[in-house]
Amino acid sequence: MPPNLTGYYRFVSQKNLEDYLQALNINVALRKIVLLLKPDKEIDHQGDRLIVKTLSTFRNYVMEFEVGVEFEEDLRMVDGRKCQVLSLGAIS
Score class of each variant (00 low, 15 high):
residue 3 P to M: 02
residue 3 P to N: 04
residue 4 N to L: 06
residue 4 N to S: 06
residue 6 T to R: 04
residue 6 T to C: 04
residue 8 Y to A: 06
residue 9 Y to F: 10
residue 10 R to E: 12
residue 10 R to N: 08
residue 10 R to P: 06
residue 11 F to K: 11
residue 12 V to Y: 12
residue 12 V to Q: 15
residue 12 V to G: 13
residue 13 S to C: 07
residue 13 S to L: 09
residue 14 Q to S: 03
residue 15 K to L: 05
residue 15 K to M: 07
residue 15 K to P: 10
residue 16 N to Y: 14
residue 17 L to S: 04
residue 17 L to V: 10
residue 19 D to T: 13
residue 20 Y to R: 06
residue 21 L to H: 05
residue 21 L to C: 08
residue 21 L to P: 05
residue 22 Q to A: 11
residue 22 Q to H: 07
residue 25 N to H: 09
residue 25 N to G: 06
residue 27 N to E: 09
residue 28 V to M: 01
residue 29 A to R: 14
residue 29 A to D: 13
residue 30 L to V: 15
residue 32 K to Q: 13
residue 33 I to V: 15
residue 34 V to I: 15
residue 35 L to T: 08
residue 35 L to A: 05
residue 36 L to T: 14
residue 38 K to S: 08
residue 39 P to N: 05
residue 40 D to E: 15
residue 41 K to D: 12
residue 41 K to I: 05
residue 41 K to M: 06
residue 43 I to T: 15
residue 46 Q to E: 11
residue 46 Q to I: 11
residue 47 G to F: 02
residue 47 G to S: 05
residue 48 D to R: 02
residue 49 R to Q: 13
residue 50 L to S: 07
residue 51 I to H: 06
residue 51 I to Y: 00
residue 51 I to P: 00
residue 53 K to R: 14
residue 54 T to P: 03
residue 54 T to H: 01
residue 55 L to V: 14
residue 56 S to Y: 01
residue 56 S to H: 03
residue 57 T to K: 10
residue 58 F to K: 07
residue 59 R to S: 08
residue 59 R to K: 15
residue 60 N to T: 04
residue 60 N to Y: 01
residue 61 Y to I: 10
residue 61 Y to P: 00
residue 62 V to A: 03
residue 63 M to S: 06
residue 63 M to W: 01
residue 63 M to K: 11
residue 63 M to A: 02
residue 64 E to Y: 09
residue 65 F to D: 11
residue 66 E to M: 01
residue 66 E to L: 01
residue 67 V to K: 01
residue 67 V to E: 04
residue 69 V to F: 01
residue 70 E to V: 03
residue 70 E to T: 12
residue 70 E to N: 01
residue 73 E to D: 12
residue 74 D to Y: 02
residue 74 D to V: 08
residue 75 L to N: 14
residue 75 L to K: 14
residue 75 L to V: 13
residue 78 V to S: 07
residue 78 V to Q: 09
residue 80 G to K: 13
residue 83 C to I: 15
residue 83 C to N: 12
residue 84 Q to G: 00
residue 84 Q to K: 11
residue 84 Q to V: 09
residue 85 V to C: 08
residue 86 L to Q: 13
residue 86 L to D: 12
residue 89 G to N: 06
residue 92 S to W: 02
residue 92 S to E: 10
